[in-house]
């Protein structure tokens, strides 16, 4: 019997609801989690929670801000000073502002584009270089169905995610030969916590269901996955509407 090797998994944007749900699914004695995000005090609490739930090693906490791209060069060496290797990296961070507000105030649009696209590319380029050199690893990027087609109701956010989707596609192509796998995850419109009260349990179960779907896709070495799965068909229809018709729709 071979002893199961410890896996080191980095979660970027570990304070988001979806990331929290995923970390709970991952937490186990064979997994060393590294939680990265802006609010370190919150991450410390989550780390304790994951240690208690997973009966595993205490997750490590690192400060990370997607917008401070100048700091990204030092980020990976800092993580690697605390764990020997990095086997999987999940990218969850993302900024979502209302379309109407972002149209009025460009700083909101700027923040979305910088966080969701530039910030993501900045850190993943470093991760990719590390994994490519090592010849193994998995990168999981959380994009969105909003990036599949531009719509008047959310195109500022959507275009930042469209950029991320194409970036992950290219990265997958680049890293395929070096044995590094890239998975693109496109969650459907995540229900706001308010809808939970209308249809009980919806939001509460959803992050957990998405986390489980994500892990399944990782194990199956999927390239791209919609979560929940039915979004694949919704987006198939939305993408297939001719632009001459689509531009007149109120979506």
């Amino acid at each position: 019997m071979t002893e199961q090797k410890m896996k080191n998994i980095l979660i970027l944007g570990a304070n988001s609801g979806m990331a929290r749900a995923l970390a709970r699914e991952l937490a186990s004695p064979q997994v060393q989690l590294i939680l990265a995000g802006r609010k370190v005090a919150e991450l410390e609490k989550s780390a304790k929670d994951l240690e208690i739930r997973g009966h595993g090693p205490a997750p490590k906490v690192v400060s990370f801000n997607a917008l401070e791209t100048g700091q990204h060069e030092q980020f990976l060496p800092e993580v690697l000073s605390r764990v020997e290797t990095l086997d999987e990296v999940y990218l969850f961070f993302g900024q979502l502002h209302g379309q109407a507000e972002a149209q009025k105030d460009f700083s909101l649009a700027w923040e979305m584009l910088m966080t969701n696209y530039v910030g993501a590319v900045s850190i993943l380029e470093r991760v990719a270089a590390y994994m490519e050199k090592r010849g193994q690893g998995i990168i999981i990027g959380v994009s969105s169905v909003a990036g599949d087609r531009g719509r008047q109701s959310n195109y500022l956010y959507g275009s930042s995610k469209a950029g991320l989707t194409v970036y992950l596609q290219g990265l997958r192509n680049r890293l395929a030969r070096s044995g590094v796998h890239v998975l693109t995850v496109k969650p459907g419109f995540v229900d706001t916590p308010m809808t939970r009260n209308k249809k009980k349990g919806l939001l509460f179960t959803q992050p957990k269901a998405i986390a489980q779907g994500m892990l399944k896709a990782v194990r199956a070495r999927k390239n791209s996955v919609y979560l929940p799965g039915f979004w694949k068909y919704i987006m198939l229809i939305i993408r297939s509407v001719p632009e001459s018709v689509f531009k007149k729709l109120k979506m």
Binding site: I52, P193, F204
Partner: peptide, 12 residues
Amino acid sequence: LDFMPYNRFLDF
């Protein structure tokens, strides 16, 4: 205030 998402174990 919906406390359902505020659900971490802090110490045991």
